[in-house]
Design a protein around this nucleic acid. Structure first.
Length: 155
DNA sequence: GCCAACGTTGGC
DNA sequence: GCCAACGTTGGC
């Protein structure tokens, strides 16, 4: 079982959107970056635990937890000419982009902000610190636990 | 395969 | 809105 951090812009799709899905889950699609794609396709699996991170907003940081319910499968949006995520170079035989399904688990008691994460020596090695733009990132168990404890402790 | 030009992301 | 960092494209 692995841990991941998924980024989203809350104006587009927030933790609250996920929480209010009637099915309790959602397809995490539209990822169009090869490094992130490779992780979705090859590494993310059902049962993995996810931190949801809000970017491009007033309070940037980790806001909640989710769980992977279905590992990587071809993102249907790449085949849909009406979709913003359509990719003419993708085909059913040779899909380019992958997505996963996740379900809401919990909102953190408070947002653990990027500013705090940067100040935390135990989190020096987080991918977030070095590769800020990657939208699917691996997280270690220790980092996972540390972030959850920061959220509980209030700080 | 290199590299310049360009596009996108994302913090501030 | 600005700008730095990074990713992608395409000519050669």
């Amino acid at each position: 079982m692995n841990y991941w951090l998924l980024k989203t812009e809350p104006d587009e799709y927030s933790l609250e959107h996920l929480r209010s899905e009637p099915s309790g889950q959602a397809r995490w699609d539209g990822i169009r970056n090869y490094q992130a794609r490779n992780l979705l396709r090859d590494a993310v699996a059902a049962g993995d635990q996810v931190l949801i991170y809000h970017s491009q907003c007033r309070q940037v940081g980790v806001v909640g937890q989710a769980e992977v319910v279905r590992g990587g499968y071809p993102d249907p949006a790449q085949f849909d000419p009406d979709s913003h995520y359509y990719d003419a170079k993708a085909s059913a035989d040779a899909p380019r982009w992958y997505c996963i399904d996740i379900r809401f688990v919990a909102a953190l008691p408070r947002t653990v902000t990027l500013a705090e994460i940067k100040r935390e020596p135990q989190l020096d090695d987080m991918v977030l610190r070095r590769q800020g733009r990657l939208s699917v990132q691996p997280v270690t168990r220790a980092q996972w636990q540390h972030i959850l404890s920061m959220a509980k402790r209030g700080q």
